[in-house]
């Protein structure tokens, strides 16, 4: 780690103002200031000297950023500084958004979940081994090419992988996108904006060095989960090589809204560890809508979910794996 100064401001505006580019570790290879939430991902980047900030601004001093609260309309706001453990254990999350609780329970390890925050988790940088290796100056770090595309791609993207083959590392994000979550962003002047989490993540085609739409002097402060419609059901499934504490080879979140007669009229199917951003499988959703879900429908949807995949030399196994997982998640959600 390089030497850096440390600040722990007491307000959000101060925090945002102190930093040029802000958000946990969004300043790879820069020498500016960096905002720190739980710090798990940032410490990893600092130790590899993939970030060498002059200043680390801790958000731990800003009160209230870890709150989890439901509003009168039944929407749930989760503060960006809420730890993964506190979100996973929260009664409202467990009762109303079990797919999120499942995704959180499978993220990292208990010791890390006690420190890692939901905001930091969404903003963590890719865990692509080329990106994390100081010895590989890859495209995302300003280098000339993506090493994974013709290299060791077993854990890489099967969609949208022509330029850079990272997968988004956040498992909770898979569930949150499926649940239609928004993120709330505040800037140094106190202005706030909200946008759907799905739109918050940035594809390599739009920006090769940044994974999200956070602007300079802006802080992610909360994740908002909408109140769910009657008849909503959901599931999140993940599959790693290991059974516990491992990055998923594939993870899938499915949120369905059924009519009283059992017909699916809304469907959200999201693939994690498949693409540089959590991937909505819209073709699969179309298959499900207006149907009564059974094994055949689920299998059709699962096949549709993999349409257009462009696996790399080492990861075509993910096609079969995702297909199985999507089918199982749909059936699990449909109950």
């Amino acid at each position: 780690m390089n030497r850096f100064a440390y600040a722990r401001p007491g307000t959000l505006a101060e925090a945002a103002a102190e930093t040029g580019l802000v958000s946990e570790a969004m300043v790879a290879l820069s020498e500016g200031a960096v905002l720190m939430a739980g710090g798990i991902d940032l410490l990893d980047l600092l130790k590899s000297e993939l970030v060498t900030p002059s200043l680390v601004v801790s958000l731990r001093g800003v009160p209230g950023l870890d709150a989890i609260a439901q509003d009168a309309a039944g929407n749930l706001a989760i503060g960006a500084m809420a730890t993964l453990a506190s979100v996973a254990e929260h009664a409202l999350v467990r009762a109303s958004y079990p797919a999120l609780a499942q995704a959180l329970a499978g993220a990292a390890s208990p010791e890390l979940r006690n420190v890692a925050t939901l905001g930091g988790n969404l903003l963590q940088r890719p865990h692509c081994w080329y990106f994390r290796s100081p010895a590989h100056h890859c495209l995302r770090k300003g280098g000339g090419h993506c090493f994974a595309i013709r290299g060791e791609s077993q854990y890489h993207a099967i969609f949208d992988n022509q330029a850079c083959a990272i997968v988004h590392p956040s498992t909770p994000a898979t569930a949150l996108v499926a649940l239609g979550a928004d993120v709330e962003l505040h800037d140094a002047e106190g202005a706030a904006r909200r946008l759907p989490l799905e739109d918050f993540f940035v594809r390599p085609g739009d920006d090769l060095q940044c994974e999200n739409a956070l602007r300079p002097r802006e802080v992610l402060t909360a994740v908002h989960l909408p109140r769910l419609a009657e008849g909503t059901r959901m599931a999140h499934l993940r599959q790693g090589e290991k059974t516990g504490f491992d990055w998923p080879l594939a993870d899938v979140a499915v949120v369905l809204v059924h009519d009283p007669d059992g017909t699916c009229h809304e469907a959200s199917v999201v693939l994690g560890a498949a693409a540089p951003v959590p991937r909505r499988a819209r073709a699969a959703e179309q298959v499900l809508k207006g149907r009564r879900i059974d094994a055949m429908v689920a299998a059709d949807a699962a096949r549709a979910a993999l349409q257009g995949a462009t696996p790399l030399s080492r990861n075509d196994y993910k096609l079969a794996l995702f297909e199985a997982l999507v089918r199982r998640a749909i059936l699990a959600a449909a109950g």
């Binding site: 081994w129 080329y130 290796s133 010895a135 590989h136 090493f147 013709r150 290299g151 060791e152």
Partner: peptide, 9 residues
């Protein structure tokens, strides 16, 4: 990695 000769994990 066969092209860089480095251990990636």
């Amino acid at each position: 990695d066969r092209r860089t000769g480095l251990m990636v994990n």
